[in-house]
């Protein structure tokens, strides 16, 4: 910022403002809306900024004018100001301006709430998201009534409204994808519902927004807004069981996953690994990150995560599994091929 000001000789504030605003776009920003709900809330935010900006400007104007007037009077002849008949009227007018501003904001808020509530009539897809310490279980309802499960990566079709039902397995979490919609708390013992209608394709980031324990900050998820056709293809692919291991190393990895510690807590559909405590690993290799947004997906990251999750995400419920290097690599290779 100092550099920009120096280049311009401190004359124009415009580049400075532009520089500050670059922080507002991005994959996790409510100031860069990519969905109907986020857009409506953002317009309400703009209205609030304009309204408060005008009010603030008016206050500064009156303050400046009165200071200027007093200085001029002091220079001429110091005198006690007589009772001013205009003062009472001025105060009433000022009160009127405040009430009018509040009415405008309340009306804007009313229309935004109405727009958010109206999305309920357009729900075309049912998704169930469950918050766990510290990851997200995501389940899609197919038209024929089955549930397809995945974790930590939410795919949404553009132009369709998805009904997201939020539940918690342990403590209070909060579901927040700022580019798509506002926050919604995830409460144990109660199902909250949030509608999302994204319209811009791309990757975004969701984050738990209610402190939920040691690794609250590492309870993130990737959000992909797809075209409806691409989304349908993705969902159909997610519904299929895992592919058989393609080579000898992957086969060795599969034997360790199903016969060792992994299968007690993780499910790989189509194999003997049937645990339900941790994330579904059936198509884990196709995801973008591991450990609920802790590390980018790669064979090396998987290997490190398996060998010592407590060093990468201290306090995570995933225990360290004692495996030698070759076995850990075989498991990482097997998981990487589960696309």
């Amino acid at each position: 910022m100092a550099g920009a000001a120096a280049v311009n000789g401190g004359r124009s504030p415009v580049p400075l403002v532009a520089l500050l605003l670059t922080g507002c776009s991005g994959i996790q920003s409510s100031l860069d809306p990519a969905g109907m709900q986020a857009g409506a809330t953002f317009r309400l935010f703009e209205l609030m900024i304009v309204m408060c900006g005008v009010m603030y400007g008016a206050v500064l104007l009156f303050l400046g004018a009165s200071v200027w007037r007093v200085r001029r009077q002091l220079a001429a002849a110091p005198a006690i100001e007589p009772a001013d008949p205009g003062l009472g009227k001025g105060l009433w007018a000022w009160g009127g301006v405040i009430v009018a501003g509040l009415v405008v904001l309340a009306t804007g808020s009313f229309f935004v709430e109405r727009a958010l509530a109206a999305a309920r009539a357009r729900e075309a897809l049912q998704v169930r998201v469950t918050g766990h310490q510290w990851w997200w279980r995501i389940q899609y309802r197919t038209p024929d009534g089955r549930w397809i499960e995945t974790a930590n990566e939410l795919h949404l079709p553009a132009g369709r409204t998805a009904r997201i039902e939020l539940g918690a397995a342990d403590v209070i979490h909060s579901f927040w994808v700022p580019n798509v919609a506002g926050k919604m708390d995830v409460i144990p013992g109660h199902t909250n519902v949030i509608d999302v209608s994204p319209h811009r394709l791309g990757w975004f980031r969701g984050q738990c927004a209610e402190f939920c324990g040691a690794q609250h900050a590492h309870m993130a998820f990737d959000v992909k807004v797809d075209s409806p056709a691409a989304f349908d293809a993705w969902l159909a692919q997610q519904g299929r069981p895992a592919a058989a291991p393609a080579d000898a190393i992957a086969a060795r990895g599969m034997a360790i996953v199903t016969g060792g510690a992994c299968g007690l807590c993780h499910v790989v559909r189509g194999s003997a690994a049937t645990g339900r405590a941790g994330p579904d690993l059936t198509h884990v290799g196709g995801r973008r990150s591991i450990g609920a947004g802790t590390l980018p997906m790669s064979r090396g990251a998987l290997q490190g995560w398996i060998a010592q999750p407590q060093a990468l995400k201290p306090g995570t419920m995933m225990p360290a599994v004692p495996l030698d290097g070759a076995d850990a690599d075989a498991v990482a290779h097997y998981l990487e091929t589960l696309r």
């Binding site: 469950t130 539940g167 918690a168 397995a169 342990d170 144990p188 013992g189 499910v267 339900r276 405590a277």
Partner: peptide
């Protein structure tokens, strides 16, 4: 009760 039990998951706490 909201926690998964073995190979069963009955949904979040209701």
């Amino acid at each position: 009760q909201g926690e998964p039990q073995g190979n069963r998951w009955q949904g979040p706490l209701q």
